[in-house]
Amino acid sequence: MSQIPTPFYCLKDFPNVYEPSEDTHLFLDALEKEQQYIVNKQPLFICEIGSGSGILITALATMLKGHCCCFATDVNPEACKVTKLTAKMNQSIVESVEMNLTNMFRCKFDLIIFNPPYVVTDSDEIGGRGLNRAYAGGMSGREIIDKFLNTLPTILSNSGACYLLLLKENNIDEIKELLQEYGYKNELVIQRKIPGEHLFVYKFFK
């Protein structure tokens, strides 16, 4: 399968949106590695949680040539705006909604991607709707991740797959065990050590 190009984006007018960084690029590499699997799966409803610049969901929309309904949520209104624009710049369509995780959707998704706020911080750093929400993960970097994990069985379709980026300090074994209890298998898609962080992208599926 072909390489997936990094989508065009422009954050000039959006200073409070997380600039695609090493973690974002690792996630793009994960999606590229999984391209055959994803294309074969023909997911109809796709959601990215915390879409930021929107390049990940746009990469998926492009990969699937628009044969999917792509949704993106973010708590940061600037991120929602730029996600929609990024999709447009790349001749794709993503429906952007200001939302906490996926709590206002009633549908199930066939594909969910989440590059969560995974950085270990004080709990009180998680607040508001600004740039801090892109990275501040609270205790063990797990506070937002855990809220998400608890909802996974209700938002992921039975044949669906979820890609999640995690940091070593997030206690990944614990996350795998929790999702095993919910009936999910896991597969390590890609990992990378960058200065100060050891990052992983996992796939969870039934």
């Binding site: 929602c80 705006k81 929609k84 952007s96 200001e98 939302m99 906490n100 709590n103 709707r129």
Partner: peptide, 14 residues
């Protein structure tokens, strides 16, 4: 606004 629905709830609403 600008085609984007704001579905965020306050903590005391959930």
């Amino acid at each position: 606004t600008n085609g984007i629905a704001n579905m965020l709830l306050n903590e005391d609403e959930v």
